[in-house]
């Protein structure tokens, strides 16, 4: 395999030392881990199973709203709270805040698991582009439904409870949550794909009809894969809502044109269907995004668009995919280099 030790050391150092060395970039690096999580969990169905979902952002938004609702409604009447448009200035004690936050994040994760299992029953009957459009439809529908729900503030959103810690510790606290979630997601995925699950996922990608003919309960595998993605997307959504401090459906909870597309773009850039592709893709993408944001503000989306087009037209296998075809031995892949098509020695 690739030099994984080096990658783990490098990323581990960045994860632990990053906010210490560059304290002013703490939230930036937190966002980096969030993008790594998004791309990696997207890849479970998108890369490894060939089910390109454009709707994983649904779980991000639903998780965010579930968590916010729980955090607020544990101590206030949610409808009154949101109807006051921020006039109620809540004061949360530390126990109230952290209790609500932990409960909120967990509830976000598990409610997204249940949601993904239910939606999965419907959308996993679709294949190829129809699945992509179907899941996109789910995300758009979720966004519109939340926009009309008055209890959670409708289009006006919810002001989140404020973290009862000194301001300079705030970034670091959320940074730790993001990093921990990304690491947990990474190792969950790594473990899953080291078992028979990984082979079944790839079998579904290569030939789903054959997989069914061999008796693999394909729907169950697809649902489980998506549920794991939904769990982590729900959790990170809950955390992001608290970082943001204020949530609303259109741009923060269900950001289809940004994070919804970015997570796919990042996985494609790094190489979909690989463990490290989405991680590397997310890091590169985030760097390009933030650099252009800082130095080429008006050009940011043009640069990102060019990266995307070059990636899709000329470089479909992505960085890790390209390395895999170039140096297959490093990845433990054997290629018959003799070139002669042997006719079987049976």
């Amino acid at each position: 395999m690739m030099n994984e030790k080096l990658l783990y050391t490098g990323l581990g150092l960045l994860g632990v030392m990053g906010p210490v060395i560059f304290p002013e970039y703490t939230l930036q690096i937190a966002m980096l881990w969030m993008m790594v999580l998004m791309a990696s969990t997207w890849d479970i169905t998108g890369g490894q199973m060939g089910y390109n979902s454009l709707g994983n952002i649904t779980f991000f938004g639903v998780g965010m709203y579930v968590s916010a609702s729980i955090q607020v409604s544990m101590f206030y009447d949610l409808a009154q709270y949101t109807a006051s448009y921020g006039a109620i200035k809540p004061v949360f004690t530390e126990t109230q805040y952290f209790g609500g936050l932990i409960l909120g994040i967990l509830a976000a994760g598990f409610s997204c698991v249940i949601l993904s299992l239910i939606i999965g029953l419907a959308v996993f009957g679709l294949r190829g582009p129809y699945f992509a459009i179907g899941t996109l439809g789910v995300a758009v529908a979720a966004r519109e439904i939340v926009t009309t729900m008055e209890t959670v503030g409708g289009g006006a959103g919810i002001s989140m409870p404020f973290l009862p810690l000194p301001i300079e510790q705030r970034s670091l606290f959320f940074y730790c949550l993001c990093f921990a979630l990304a690491v947990a997601a990474h190792f969950t995925i790594r473990w899953m794909f080291s078992t028979q699950f990984g082979l079944a996922a790839n079998a579904i990608r290569d030939d789903e009809d054959k997989a069914e003919a061999m008796g693999i309960p394909t729907l169950r595998y697809k649902q489980v894969g998506w549920a794991v993605a939904a769990f982590y997307m729900g959790c990170i959504g809950a955390v992001f809502g608290n970082i943001s401090g204020y949530i609303e459906p259109q741009n923060i909870a269900f950001p289809l044109p940004t994070f919804g597309i970015f997570m796919v773009a990042m996985a494609l850039l790094g190489g979909k269907g690989t463990l490290w592709g989405p991680v590397i893709g997310a890091i590169l993408f985030h760097i390009v995004k933030e650099t252009t944001w800082t130095y080429l503000l008006d050009w940011q989306y043009i640069v990102l668009g060019i990266v995307l087009i070059v990636n899709i037209v000329f470089f479909q296998q992505g960085i890790v995919g390209w390395l895999k075809t170039k140096y297959p031995e490093k990845f433990g892949i054997l290629v018959d280099r003799s070139g002669n098509v042997s006719r079987g020695d049976a």
Binding site: Q196, F197, A203, D206, G215, L334
Partner: peptide, 30 residues
Amino acid sequence: RIYGEMNCVDNMQISVSHRPDSKDSMFASR
């Protein structure tokens, strides 16, 4: 029909029985 992007051993390993009486489970070791 085979799983064209996987190697032969992987093709074989995922072809184990998925019958209720089989030992194979979703996250079984390879």
